[in-house]
Design a protein around this nucleic acid. Structure first.
Length: 142
DNA sequence: GCCAACGTTGGC
DNA sequence: GCCAACGTTGGC
């Protein structure tokens, strides 16, 4: 299974909203690279849910429940969307500042391409961030 | 097909 | 609110 990070401005669609809705269609992605990432998503893939602009932190974990299909909100029919559901909130928010402060996450898509709204997350990155989100201030161990 | 102009996103 | 980065558009 693959891992991803999906971004949303809380004012547009916050994590709390997804929790309330249980699941949602991740529509409105127009960026070409982001679309490619969406198409690569498979059912069961996990996604970090990141709040951009406000908060700038990873707040929860979502799961892909429906693979890419044409985005109904795109009149041109070029864009795709996936359905995701809320899995669980993270124990502790992981902020962008912390991610930037972690040398191992220097190559993280969120940092490297800050404008991309759907970015891939490697296994190692996923594990590390999971660790960072688990209560302690710093990742346990080395 | 290239490149400049413009628009949008997102961090600070 | 400002500015930098980057994607997209349109003229040539």
């Amino acid at each position: 299974m693959a891992y991803w990070l999906i971004k949303s401005e809380p004012s547009a669609y916050a994590w709390e909203q997804l929790v309330k809705d249980k699941k949602t269609s991740w529509t409105g992605v127009r960026n070409a690279q982001a679309s490619i990432n969406l198409k690569a998503m498979k059912i069961g893939d996990r996604c970090f849910f990141y709040h951009s602009n406000e908060g700038k932190e990873i707040v929860g974990i979502a799961e892909v429940v429906k693979a890419a299909y044409p985005d109904p909100t795109d009149e041109e029919g070029k864009s795709v969307t996936v359905d995701v559901k809320a899995v669980e909130p993270v124990e502790r928010f992981v902020t962008l500042a912390e991610i930037k402060a972690e040398p191992k996450l220097r190559d993280f898509g969120l940092v490297r391409q800050s404008r991309l709204s759907v970015v891939p997350v490697s296994d190692e990155q996923w594990k590390l961030i999971m660790k960072m989100s688990a209560a302690a201030k710093k990742p346990a161990g080395k």
